[in-house]
Amino acid sequence: MADLIQLKDSIVKGRLNDAVDLTRVALDEGTDPQLLITDYMITAMQEIGQKFQDKQAYVPELLMAARAMRGALNLVQPLLVGEKSVTIGKIVIGTVFGDLHDIGKHLVASMLEGCGFEVIDLGVNVSADAFVKAVKEHDADILALSALLTTTMNYMKTVIDAMDQNGLRPKVKIMVGGAPVNKLFADQIGADGYSANANEAVHCAKQLLNIQ
């Protein structure tokens, strides 16, 4: 029997190889893939997220966990094809036009994914048109925008205006972040949410969608 508590533990501790091995055994034994995700993997990410919040874990530990989770998820996901969507919400994320910084956005995207969201990452230097197209195409619940410089963060307003002009604003929540962004700026440009780090981004996203 695969030890599923140990699977959860190996994700919390960021042990990629253990997480992958245990997942493989569990799947070979016929464990329900959906159960693996919701009851063990996401729970593990919530646990490490809480530790981070309580200052008992640091960013790299969060990422080692997200990495182990990704490895395990890679085995499970192909088995879910065709099944009803199992995510708690769809998020389109990208770094705005004129900016090529990726790492902050990457961290946010993997935490969101680790905690049960489906994340569509459009990459860097993304135009307002591309955001509009992706939000429409994926019927996204949340649009998440990132920027690292004061010169590029203003483009977030352009993206929000474009959502408005295309009639998408009532349908999609918008959250923003990045080193120069703060709550005040987020309010000024009419975003719905802001957070200073990847873990809080998960709380922010859940709040925006009224998820516990």
Binding site: G14, V59, P60, A66, R70, I103, H106
Partner: peptide, 14 residues
């Protein structure tokens, strides 16, 4: 490393 998908590797390289 940004495009390879391993978030920890991308973070450390960055």
């Amino acid at each position: 490393y940004r495009v390879s998908g391993d978030v920890m590797e991308a973070f450390v390289a960055d």
